[in-house]
């Protein structure tokens, strides 16, 4: 498969990239790792006239952690850079766990976490852990800078809520709450065996990665026993809005949300007790 004809623009500063995007509007697409956009262009699912490559914009591939401020991931940090980062491994193991199960070494050397989120696939694998970790997206555009909670960043499959001309610059993750444990599905905070707060994120079972707020509410301030976990898992499965497609049926996905939420909550409880 060949690429359609396009013009490649290579800005070296963020301001230049924003100006180019503002100038060419919907005729242009930003390219980070290209692991989503290049295949889309080959399939003619995307045919931008201008491709704005971000690779020459320096200083956007940082991964920085501060105990009080949390984690900041630059929009150009690759999936493998985040996966191999010692501060991510020790403070946000659930994020490393999820990225470690994504794609392949070659794809992770190119692809970015920012691209994974901007591509807004319902199955974006970094979406669920980052929803549970309450991440925020810092974007910059013609009207200046703003941050958007990740939950409000996803709009529908393939679309996020950035305005035309806006570029994602940073993913911000607050410090992990003390005594918390997360597995690649959920996060619970406990005190004396009482769940202070639970966060459950689901992927591939709705138009966007989503939080199961009703199920989370049921767990807040309660002691997590198997009966309550079972009830919350059922509630989460009722919140999911899956489709049937070539990969599986909607009925199967609903059932699996129940099973995985139950297993996830049980494992997260154990991790929270241990940590």
């Amino acid at each position: 498969m060949t690429l359609p004809k396009f013009e490649y623009l290579a800005p070296t500063t963020l301001a230049e990239a924003c100006a180019l995007l503002a100038k060419h509007q919907e005729k242009a697409r930003v390219l980070a790792g290209g692991t989503d956009l290049v295949p889309q262009m080959k399939k003619r699912a995307a045919t931008p006239q201008y491709v704005i490559g971000l690779k020459n914009v320096s200083g956007l591939d940082y991964i920085e952690f501060d105990k009080t401020k949390g984690l900041r991931i630059g929009a150009l940090a690759t999936l493998n850079a985040v996966l191999d980062s010692p501060v991510v491994k020790s403070n946000y193991p659930v994020l490393a766990e999820a990225i470690g199960r994504m794609a392949t070494v070659q794809v992770r050397n190119l692809g970015t976490v920012g691209g994974n989120l901007c591509n807004a696939s319902p199955a974006a694998d970094s979406g669920t852990p980052l929803l549970v970790l309450d991440a925020r997206m810092k974007v910059t555009g013609p009207k200046g800078e703003r941050t958007i909670p990740l939950e409000a960043f996803f709009k529908c499959p393939g679309q996020c809520t950035m305005e035309p001309g806006e570029i994602l610059t940073e993913i911000q993750v607050p410090p992990p709450p003390p005594k918390s444990g997360a597995v690649f599905l959920k996060l619970a905070r406990t005190k004396d065996g009482i769940c202070q707060e639970a966060r459950i994120a689901l992927g591939s079972v709705a138009p966007t990665p989503m939080r199961a707020h009703k199920a989370e509410e049921m767990l807040k301030g309660k002691k997590l026993d198997s009966a309550l976990i079972e009830k919350a898992a059922l509630a989460a499965s009722q919140e999911a809005r899956p489709i049937s497609d070539i990969r599986s049926s909607a009925e199967y996905r609903v059932e699996m949300v129940k099973v995985l939420t139950r297993n996830g909550l049980t494992q997260a409880m154990e991790r929270a007790k241990a940590g």
Binding site: A10, L31, G34, T35, V38, P39, G53, Q106, N109, L110
Partner: peptide, 14 residues
């Protein structure tokens, strides 16, 4: 020094 897929890498970016 890093493995990448040639089919996903634009020649311009190499």
């Amino acid at each position: 020094g890093k493995t990448v897929n040639a089919c996903l890498t634009l020649a311009l970016e190499a």
